[in-house]
């Protein structure tokens, strides 16, 4: 599998660490309540198809990426910097 790091270019997946769905970017407010926090930490879909997940380019530039890919075909559609995803929303 190859991941197109926006900083380093197309790189082998072994340079990256995986950390689950990109929902982890949507950190609830401190007072959002246990239900919201429980969802945020523990509950994830297990999609057969397109998904967005977080990858860390630890053996590269150190960037956290949001990678769009398909869990069935393993096609990687693209990657963007988590910084831009979070920053664009704030």
């Amino acid at each position: 599998m190859r991941i197109p790091c926006p900083i380093c270019g197309n790189r082998d997946s072994r340079e990256f660490d995986y950390m689950g769905h990109a929902l982890t970017l949507d950190r609830p407010a401190p007072d959002a309540g246990l239900g919201a926090w429980d969802d945020y930490l523990h509950n994830r879909e297990n999609p057969a198809g397109p998904t967005r997940d977080l990858w860390f380019h630890g053996l590269g530039c150190g960037a956290w990426l949001v990678v769009s890919r398909d869990t069935v075909t393993h096609e990687v559609f693209g990657a963007e910097l988590a910084r831009d995803v979070t920053g664009g929303r704030a």
Binding site: D17, M19, T24, L25, R27, L54, F56, G58, G62, A63, W64, L81, A82, R83, V85, T86, G87, A90
Partner: peptide, 18 residues
């Protein structure tokens, strides 16, 4: 050390890029 560094990068880039 490695895990903390990765965590710090996450907190900064993904949660608090501001």
């Amino acid at each position: 050390a490695g895990q903390v560094m990765k965590h710090m990068e996450f907190v900064h880039q993904a949660l608090r890029p501001d």
